[in-house]
Design a protein around this nucleic acid. Structure first.
Lengths: 137, 137
DNA sequence: CAGTATCCACTTCGATACTG
DNA sequence: CAGTATCGAAGTGGATACTG
């Protein structure tokens, strides 16, 4: 048994994952894990943004996906959407306090990804080399 | 502008998200965000597990998805897979040091989810109440 | 500008059946 | 026990065209 396995058992299961299905954690994780949410959150972490500003700031996102993403974030209470009834319309997005509190965790995840980016890439290359024609993805 | 928006701008973009597409962070996030990975990681955080043990410990996971999930985690270097050539076969899974380092972040995410679980649920109910027949999901 | 509406491609997931 | 193989349902994302 490895020493690196510190005792996180109890604290890792604060809601009884072993008994209950998933206690809604997946709810949040799938939001964080979807293709654009984190990028939108990161972009909004810099401050208020308009729809087009967001789209320009996030490389490759389509109008449709930006709409869907900000709507979901708004629904979850992570982002506020403010409409100014001007012509043409003007809409701004801003992180809520809740959304902002998530940015800290997102940042840590981003840092972790960055720190181990190459290690993971090498692990994958290694795996693929030793397991040719093995379709995992 | 809200006081809650502390200055995380610079540190949130350690790899130039604004210039580069996504610098591989999404790679990790989608892994964390997929339906079963985190549950498997949590389960393995308690120690070594065999295939069936994992399946029994994770409510609702199918054989196929467990296989796919542990394979991907193995490929990423987060989990080691050890085969004992007994009859019947015996295979154990264990977090690597890298995988274990991720558990800390996963735990924080889980805690965050738990802390704000009800807030989010209320935000959603609210949103849905004020936006009837609005298909977001 | 800030969206909606449609359609389609692709992926993910679950269920079931079978195997060394 | 620990998988693999196959299939189909559902979800997710992209491209394009249109609107107040």
């Amino acid at each position: 048994m490895s020493d690196s396995h510190i005792q996180v058992t109890a604290s890792l299961d604060p809601c009884g994952l072993d008994e209950h299905p998933d206690c809604g954690i997946r709810d949040v994780l799938t939001r964080v894990g979807d293709k654009w949410s984190v990028l939108v959150i990161v972009e909004l972490a810099s401050g208020v943004r308009r729809f087009r500003e967001l789209q320009r700031g996030i490389d490759g996102i389509s109008q449709r996906m930006l709409t869907l993403t900000v709507r979901r974030l708004e629904r979850d209470g992570l982002v506020t959407r403010t409409v100014f009834p001007t012509v043409p319309a003007q809409v701004t997005y801003e992180l809520t306090a809740l959304g902002n509190s998530l940015t800290h965790l997102v940042k840590q995840l981003a840092d972790w990804s960055l720190d181990h980016r190459e290690t993971i890439a090498r692990a994958r290359a290694d795996y693929d080399a030793h397991h040719p024609d093995h379709e995992i993805r």
